[in-house]
Simulated assay, not measured.
Amino acid sequence: MTAGTYAVDPWPIGLPWRWWDEIGADEAAARGVFTPVHSVSGRPPGSVILAPGDIRALRFILERCNDGCCGMDNGDGPNLACAQCGQAAATRIDVCSYWQEVRLDPQAVRRVELDGPASTPTDWETVLTETRLLMPSADLTEWWSPESYVATGVAMAHLLAASGGAPLRFWPGPAADMFGSALDALLPPGPAPKTVALTGPGLRPFDAAPDISLVPRHPETGEPWQPPGARDLVPLAAELWLQLSSQGTWLRSPATGRLPAGVLRDDPLPQYSKRWLEVDRGACIHTLCRLPAVREPWLRAIYDRMTNWMFQPPPLG
């Protein structure tokens, strides 16, 4: 989480965990899980996620802070308590392979309205301009950022659900390069494919709207950009959408003479990945089992194929 921001997780997470055979399909569906999984959290949904540095007036519950191999996770339940009353109120997660975050327990905290006008979300032009300043998002190991990697798997799951079982035909471009071959391998061939295209602010409108539009999701509100006349939307994280819509438009070396508009002015230049961004299979499976559409036989068959590809899986991008 970026400092000063928050998110609300619609899915439950944390103790107590209940086996699938114990909880059953109906109760699991009520908790947002629509295919058999190893276990389902018995906690209520709606935990508020903050950056670790944004919490105040909480102290560690020391006996619950030694459950991770390299730090703290949520294996022993909430590990932060109110500094005044001692009530367990949140979980600090700070261990390898996990996002660093603090989750406020929805059973222990409540929202308090503040006086004054509500803040106005940043307009799309500013959002994309500020996000573009951070592009391309590769880390020092020359891999794409974890946020972008996970976003590919989430997008793949929603593309599969939006297909309705029909083949997808991408309009030429980076989105086709990323998702096209994987979806061709997963979806059955058919005579009437659905068209998919990147759509969003700053892009030239199409003469005929595609069947499925890949649009950016506002990083502050979570709301997708709404193109006029759109039929079906698949929201992408703003960073991933920019990577796809702007691929190949950055100048990768300093220009001589007068600097043209759009040239990178950083010194040293930002890191560029030497690898094309691949689809995160784990994020795709995790998202698919939480989409009601996965109960459709055709999509459940794809889900089962993906979860059974253990040693020689087909490429996902």
Rank of each mutant, 00 (worst) to 15 (best):
residue 45 P to W: 07
residue 150 V to M: 05
residue 240 L to K: 04
residue 34 F to H: 12
residue 42 G to N: 08
residue 125 E to V: 13
residue 67 D to I: 06
residue 20 W to Q: 05
residue 64 R to V: 08
residue 59 R to L: 15
residue 286 H to M: 08
residue 18 R to I: 13
residue 197 A to D: 01
residue 258 R to Y: 00
residue 209 A to T: 04
residue 144 W to K: 09
residue 164 G to H: 04
residue 155 A to P: 10
residue 249 T to N: 07
residue 98 Y to N: 14
residue 221 T to I: 01
residue 244 L to F: 03
residue 80 L to K: 06
residue 227 P to A: 12
residue 168 L to S: 00
residue 229 G to V: 02
residue 205 P to C: 11
residue 229 G to W: 03
residue 123 D to V: 15
residue 140 L to T: 10
residue 85 C to W: 13
residue 156 M to K: 00
residue 196 V to E: 01
residue 40 V to G: 05
residue 36 P to W: 13
residue 199 T to D: 12
residue 136 P to R: 08
residue 308 N to H: 14
residue 275 R to E: 14
residue 109 V to K: 01
residue 189 P to M: 07
residue 36 P to I: 08
residue 257 G to N: 15
residue 209 A to E: 08
residue 191 P to D: 15
residue 18 R to P: 04
residue 95 V to M: 01
residue 295 R to S: 03
residue 119 S to G: 09
residue 80 L to N: 05
residue 41 S to C: 05
residue 281 R to C: 03
residue 206 F to E: 03
residue 79 N to K: 11
residue 55 I to E: 12
residue 236 L to I: 02
residue 140 L to Q: 09
residue 264 L to H: 00
residue 116 G to D: 10
residue 107 Q to V: 12
residue 79 N to M: 08
residue 78 P to W: 01
residue 141 T to G: 07
residue 113 E to W: 00
residue 144 W to A: 01
residue 118 A to R: 12
residue 177 D to E: 15
residue 164 G to A: 02
residue 159 L to I: 10
residue 90 A to W: 01
residue 225 W to M: 02
residue 297 P to Q: 11
residue 236 L to G: 04
residue 268 P to M: 02
residue 10 P to E: 09
residue 188 P to Y: 03
residue 276 W to Y: 15
residue 146 P to A: 09
residue 103 R to H: 03
residue 158 H to T: 13
residue 284 C to R: 07
residue 268 P to A: 09
residue 185 A to P: 03
residue 85 C to V: 15
residue 21 D to V: 01
residue 46 G to F: 10
residue 261 A to Y: 05
residue 112 V to P: 00
residue 290 R to H: 09
residue 261 A to I: 09
residue 201 P to T: 09
residue 156 M to T: 07
